[in-house]
Design a protein around this nucleic acid. Structure first.
Length: 459
RNA sequence: GUGACUGUAGCUCAGCAGGUUAGAGCACCAGAUUGUGGUUCUGGGGGUCGUGGGUUCGAAUCCCAUCAGUCACCCCA
């Protein structure tokens, strides 16, 4: 048999040690902020029942769900007649009843319904796990990627919306990424749809105006025409999309437009309250009211949030919103939730292109002991035991190889210190410690070695 | 699902109006240098030119198909 060239599926990646440490840096930063706000972790399985996921992400979303083929002789149970029809919608449930999770929000809603007896509401949870989408990969888009979600379920208060904006601000400040936080409200969009006489076309309207900053006003209006809106309706919508000014001015303008829509007015009211709450503990990042922000996930009902880098052209790196009835689908009514999701992989790409990772993030071993031979090795090993007990990550080169080779090993693995002990050092009970960054070398007692390594770590 | 582009060494690529034995840089291994890496110099290993077919005396080079990858659209983290 011919040798197979190994590979991994399209849109998936291997991570090397440096990438892992940088990814962990992102995860740790997000996790820490979540914990500081009182969120608690859960995990759910990589696969869910297909029926749990279907219909929650819109038509496009359903298409992008990775299905898992049933095991065993599943084709034997299928009727010849059904088989002959080749009807995918009928055959699909017979071929596949499980699927890889598409996001973390729907599995969370499922989790809440299933475990409601032991949950105290409001329930604040975070979850950092991979999700899978059968999308065609491109820049910043993968088929397997990590989401870092936090949700609050069982609380209507807009304090939650404000807290998530605060969390977003804290995470990106800690990572040194300048972002714009865009906020909108589905109720305002619904109000606009009512206002122009197409209350049922909200999805068409929002997906079109979502592209405003990308393709421009004219193209958006063209698309709306294609989607079946009358020119009168478009003329009504046009000035609303062109509203500029401060958040306050935008809201005041919308008051007049949406006064006949109770949903729209409620959305405006929510937005006002939200900005009032944010004002109590202001954030560093730019927060904008963006009427063109729509977001495709169709379970959102209130506030919607999206975050973009100010310095790198990339899709959104964090998004979220309020969903009033997600658990209702699974039989638990009148529980409102809100959540956000950080896209760790895109954040990684942004940080990489801006060189924002600190140097210390790539350091694993802090010290390598050179192996000169059996006698010297036995002198070093107890010292390494002590170093480890004192929190120093260190290792001994396993072979008494050439000095050059051992030094290269330290160099390539980004190990900042090399410990050496030969006859002279052993006789005096000391060690030579070389700083690989500066090239400096000192003869030291073990205690001084520990101090020096720790001092370097702290810089 | 739609469209465009690209497949040559582990990586980045050159070669291509068809013509000896397919190249470079980086990386790797060894030596210069038997207790000092990251610099320098010398030498070495590594390729059925994505795959299959066609045109031709002759194909990495031209044509067709196929597979893979990248980017954009749709949609989204």
């Amino acid at each position: 048999m011919a040798k197979e060239k190994p590979g991994i599926p399209k849109g998936t990646r291997d991570f090397d040690p440096l990438e892992i440490s940088r990814r962990e840096y992102i995860f740790d930063t997000i996790r820490k902020v979540y914990q500081l706000h009182g969120f608690r972790p859960i995990e759910t399985p990589a696969m869910e029942m297909l029926s749990t996921l279907m219909g929650k992400y819109g038509e496009e979303g359903d298409r992008l769900i990775f299905r898992i083929l049933n095991s065993g002789d599943f084709t034997a149970k299928i009727d010849d007649e059904v088989w002959q029809t080749k009807d995918a919608s009928k055959l699909s449930p017979m071929l596949s009843e499980k699927a890889l999770r598409y996001d973390l929000t729907v599995p969370f809603a499922r989790y809440v319904v299933q475990h409601q007896h032991k949950i105290t509401f409001p329930f604040k949870r975070y979850q950092i796990q991979p999700v899978w989408r059968a999308d065609r990969p491109q820049k910043g888009r993968y088929r397997e990627f990590f989401q870092c979600d936090a949700d609050v379920i069982g609380s209507d208060s807009l304090v939650n919306e404000a807290e998530f904006i605060k969390i977003i601000d804290e995470v990106f400040s800690a990572l040194n990424i300048r972002v714009a936080i865009k906020v909108n409200n589905r109720k305002i969009l619904a109000g606009l749809a009512e206002y122009i006489g197409y209350p049922d076309a909200i999805t068409d309207i929002t997906t079109a105006i979502d592209k405003l900053d990308k393709i421009g006003l004219e193209k958006v209006l063209e698309e709306l025409t294609e989607r079946g809106l009358s020119s009168a309706a478009i003329e009504k919508l046009k000035p609303v999309l062109q509203v500029t000014g401060t958040i306050q001015e935008k809201l005041d303008h919308l008051d007049a437009v949406l006064e006949s829509s109770s949903t729209g007015s409620k959305g405006l009211d929510e937005m006002r309250q939200l900005f009032d709450i944010i004002a109590v503990t202001p954030v560093n990042s730019a927060v904008e009211l963006d009427l063109t922000l729509a977001r495709g996930l169709n379970y959102y009902t209130g506030a919607i949030i999206e975050v973009k880098s100010q310095d790198v052209l990339m899709g959104s790196i964090c998004g979220g919103g309020r969903y009033d009835d997600l658990t209702g689908i699974f039989g638990l009514n009148d529980v409102s939730g809100i959540g956000i999701s950080f896209g760790a992989d895109r954040i990684y790409d942004v940080m990489q292109s801006l060189s924002l990772f600190p140097d210390s993030v790539g350091t694993f071993s802090q010290l390598l002991a050179v192996n000169f031979g059996e006698k010297e090795r036995n002198y070093c090993m107890p010292a390494l035991e002590i170093l480890r007990a004192r929190g120093v990550r260190c290792e001994l080169y396993p072979e008494p190889a050439k000095m050059k080779k051992q030094m290269q090993y330290a160099d390539k693995n980004n190990i900042p210190f090399v410990l050496m002990a030969g006859d002279e050092e052993m006789e005096k009970g000391v060690f030579s410690l070389k700083n690989m960054r500066s090239g400096e070398q000192h003869t030291l007692e073990l205690e001084q070695v520990i101090t020096m390594v720790h001092a370097h770590n702290g810089e």
